[in-house]
Design a protein around this nucleic acid. Sequence first.
DNA 1: TATAATAATGACTACTTGGTCAGTTGTCAA
DNA 2: TTGACAACTGACCAAGTAGTCATTATTATA
Lengths: 276, 276
Amino acid sequence: MSKKQLIMETAIELFATKGIESTSVQQITEQCGISKGAFYLSFKSKDELIMSIIDYFMKSFTIEIDRIVNAFSNPNDKLFHFYLTTFEMMKKNANFTEVFIKEQLHSIDEALINKMTFYETFITKTLQNIILELYGERIDQHQYDLSYIIKGFIGSYSHLIMKTTQPLNLKELCESLVEKTDCIAQHCNKFFITEEMFKQSAYHVVEVVKEDIINELQRVYKNMEDEIILDSLSILNEQLNSAVPRKAIIHGMLLNLQQESKCSWLCFLVRKYFNL
Amino acid sequence: MSKKQLIMETAIELFATKGIESTSVQQITEQCGISKGAFYLSFKSKDELIMSIIDYFMKSFTIEIDRIVNAFSNPNDKLFHFYLTTFEMMKKNANFTEVFIKEQLHSIDEALINKMTFYETFITKTLQNIILELYGERIDQHQYDLSYIIKGFIGSYSHLIMKTTQPLNLKELCESLVEKTDCIAQHCNKFFITEEMFKQSAYHVVEVVKEDIINELQRVYKNMEDEIILDSLSILNEQLNSAVPRKAIIHGMLLNLQQESKCSWLCFLVRKYFNL
DNA sequence: TATAATAATGACTACTTGGTCAGTTGTCAA
DNA sequence: TTGACAACTGACCAAGTAGTCATTATTATA
């Protein structure tokens, strides 16, 4: 395990029990068994550590949701696995989830807020797509309420998951939630949230821009050694800067890269950018 | 406005924007236009201030929920007003709600945790009673899921209420939520939360004990001047310590006291204690 | 083995925090 | 006008904070 990872994991543990503000860098380094100076070799500030942790988990979560939703064609399965993946990720990263639920992070860097908006918007968008696929025209203006209701289910039951020590049958839970979602979509007539309200409160238009991809590409490039991976990254870079990018080449390069977990986020961005 | 109230209100405002931990006593006193010393005349520590704020709002909320639910006999109205009162209280105390949502308060005094448990349990119990009155036998084991679902609705839509600046028709929202609650209660078959799971995670048996009432009574007594109120408190005290308390007398004293808002919590405790 | 390069240390600084307390101010009855 | 009392002040303290940097240890290379 790299020093960076050690610090992040230790920090999450401490954050979860004592809160972010009340955990000092000193305590983190003591728990890690390293010196204070060593900490500042990995992160240039405490804020950067916090940012990194949040960014890391939000990326994993976003990638995983995207992967699992695309893995199923039946919209019913999509909804089921949207629930299931969410709960599983929360349970797997219980410590982080706890921190995240507890501290809605005031202030902190504006860059982080923008990133968070991106992640949140993407997940909301994914959920909206599932709802529309599932219920289509029929649902009409109900779709925005449904989105809130689904998030309400997740919020409420996630508390249960975090609290309980006994093992839970998450699949059973998700099946019951799909039933309940269906039930509301089929039988309810009164809606409250209008399109305008929804967009104002939850739906920021966030586009992947070429610059983000190039940045991520350069970041990844530095940490790679395998020749095919490096070459794939170069070719991808050429295609990105080309006036007429060829989708087949990009597609192939993504297949090359998807073996490497460090490239997941890059692949995600590229797929969204080219609608692949 | 008393100095105590000034400090509390100023603190809530600052807490809401910067977070509890990041707000210093210095900043609070500066904003109030008082000295640091003056702060410590009203509160013996920052923690006590935090405790007082939370306690104050949770008391108000608990009393209000209890009042409004008892004001209606039709269980459908009860559920509607449970939703409505919750949202209205949240909106009215938006700043506090924000702090409360954002910071799930790690550590802090054990006494506070016990108090919170009491408030939460009482509200959960109230909600369970409404559910049982509404759906009775029919609902059977679904009742625990329903409780989680209702709380999920509240959690999710409260975010909307806090975010949006435009005025919302809360009654319309609550009607739609009652419809959705009904819908799930009537049509869904799959339940997830068992009685055991529910009790373990959310339902602590909390009894009002005589000692709590006596403490509250003495606290209130010191701050009163009206003769009838003072006498009513004395009589209530006698009845509490009597071997055979007479409900009619207690009932009458509560009627005397209920004019005085400072006695609300005392009245609430007494009513729960004697099942009035 | 000698040398260069990198990794890691922890005493240190500059600053903020919650909390105290000797002293000042204001009030009001005698 | 006096004096007693409470309300209030803010310099001060000990403890803790994030972050730095001269120094030392470790490793890789020649």
